[in-house]
């Protein structure tokens, strides 16, 4: 009898693949790529680290994490997802434009059954994601561990991050 065809599930864990993602932006649309890729990597058994720096702090700051915004100011290729009709990006500067476009994007995300940012962080935490906050950003914004999402392991220096990401594939978002 021939050997049965069985999926090989343990390649990554044995090869020691590791991923580190630097999250440096606090816009709603720039928070998701890092979260989604981290989730995908964790689901593949890959050791995953997220390093939050500068505006990326807004993703893990308890005060702001549920309230990230999407603005189309400065996005010269602006169109609503699912429509090719362009919108001049300076219209985003009109009062209420950011609130309206944020609301619309949040609805589109939730319609796809993708969690909001705080719930996403919980999901990543439960999946074993390592989360780190940048020392310089914390000092600059006068934030401590108490201000940050509970899953954040520590506030660490740039050197610490370079050390812990040794051998990792690196993404800067």
């Amino acid at each position: 009898m021939s050997t049965p065809i069985v999926p090989s599930f343990d390649d990554n864990t044995t090869s020691g693949r590791k991923l580190a993602i630097i999250c440096s932006k606090g816009n709603l649309d720039m928070a998701y790529p890092g979260l989604i890729l981290a989730n995908a990597a964790l689901g593949e058994g890959i050791e995953t680290h997220l390093f939050f720096t500068f505006w990326g702090f807004d993703i893990i700051n308890k005060e702001t994490m549920a309230d990230l915004k999407f603005t189309f100011v400065g996005n010269t290729s602006m169109h609503m997802p699912g429509s090719s009709m362009g919108i001049h990006h300076m219209l985003g500067a009109l009062p209420g434009a950011t609130a309206a476009s944020t609301k619309m994007m949040k609805k589109m995300i939730s319609d796809l059954d993708v969690p909001d940012v705080p719930e996403f962080l919980e999901l990543l935490s439960a999946s074993g994601c390592h989360m780190w906050a940048c020392r310089m950003s914390a000092d600059m914004m006068k934030l401590t561990m108490d201000d940050l999402f509970d899953g954040v392991e520590d506030i660490i220096s740039a050197t610490d991050f370079i050390e812990l990401s040794e051998g990792a594939q690196l993404l800067f978002i």
């Binding site: 599930f9 593949e44 058994g45 439960a126 999946s127 074993g128």
Partner: peptide, 18 residues
């Protein structure tokens, strides 16, 4: 999710569906 990772270590979604 934690329990799923414990039951089907490494790649829970793929292992469960298999």
């Amino acid at each position: 999710v934690k329990e799923l990772f414990a039951l089907f270590p490494g790649k829970p979604a793929k292992k469960m569906s298999y």
